[in-house]
Amino acid sequence: MTEQLFRFLAVEDWREFCWVLIGLGAQLMFTARFLVQWIASERARRSVVPVSFWYLSIAGGLVLFAYAVYRKDPVFILGQSAGVFIYCRNLWLIYAERRRNQG
């Protein structure tokens, strides 16, 4: 059974198997951010991007970046590192606007 699972996931040992699980978990975080955004928009009856979307983006992006580094995939590494920067910048802008509006 383990041999079939390893073959299906294209892994050779338990360490690689764990990394695949980490990568899948990160991908689930990315999927969750879209579900959060969709639910928030449906409730508001307009397009809304909640702050939690950006936190899920950062979490998923950082873990996928680690996974990409482990897999030594330069395309994936570049894509995730750029994304994490953009997600952080969006949070920075959100909190900067909140500070301006408070004071």
Rank of each mutant, 00 (worst) to 15 (best):
M1Y: 02
T2F: 02
E3I: 10
E3M: 03
E3V: 06
Q4K: 15
L5E: 11
L5Q: 09
F6C: 08
F6M: 08
R7A: 13
F8C: 11
L9S: 08
L9D: 12
L9M: 11
A10G: 13
V11P: 11
V11D: 12
E12D: 14
E12N: 15
D13E: 14
W14I: 09
W14N: 09
R15P: 01
E16Q: 15
F17M: 13
C18P: 00
C18E: 09
W19G: 11
L21Y: 06
L21C: 15
I22W: 06
G23T: 13
L24Q: 14
L24V: 11
G25A: 15
L28M: 15
M29F: 14
F30N: 08
T31W: 04
A32W: 05
A32D: 00
R33N: 01
F34S: 06
L35D: 01
L35Q: 02
V36Y: 01
V36S: 07
Q37R: 05
Q37F: 04
W38G: 03
I39E: 03
A40V: 01
S41F: 04
S41M: 03
S41N: 02
R43T: 00
A44W: 00
R45V: 02
V48S: 01
V48N: 00
V48Q: 00
V49K: 01
V49P: 04
P50A: 00
V51L: 06
S52F: 02
F53A: 06
W54Q: 05
L56N: 02
S57K: 01
S57N: 06
A59E: 11
G61C: 10
G61E: 04
G61S: 08
L62T: 04
L62Y: 04
V63C: 09
V63W: 10
L64V: 11
L64W: 08
L64Y: 02
L64M: 15
F65M: 13
F65D: 03
F65N: 02
A68T: 14
V69R: 08
V69N: 03
V69C: 10
K72R: 13
K72S: 12
D73L: 06
D73Q: 09
D73E: 15
D73I: 05
P74D: 07
V75W: 13
I77T: 05
I77C: 07
I77Y: 03
G79Q: 05
G79M: 09
Q80R: 04
S81W: 08
A82R: 10
A82I: 15
A82W: 10
A82Y: 02
G83C: 04
G83W: 03
V84D: 01
V84S: 07
F85V: 15
I86Y: 05
C88E: 00
R89A: 14
R89V: 11
L93D: 09
L93M: 06
L93V: 05
I94H: 13
I94W: 08
Y95T: 10
A96W: 12
A96V: 11
A96Q: 15
E97W: 03
R98D: 14
R98C: 01
R99E: 15
R99D: 14
N101V: 08
N101S: 14
N101A: 13
Q102M: 06
G103P: 07
G103T: 13
G103D: 07
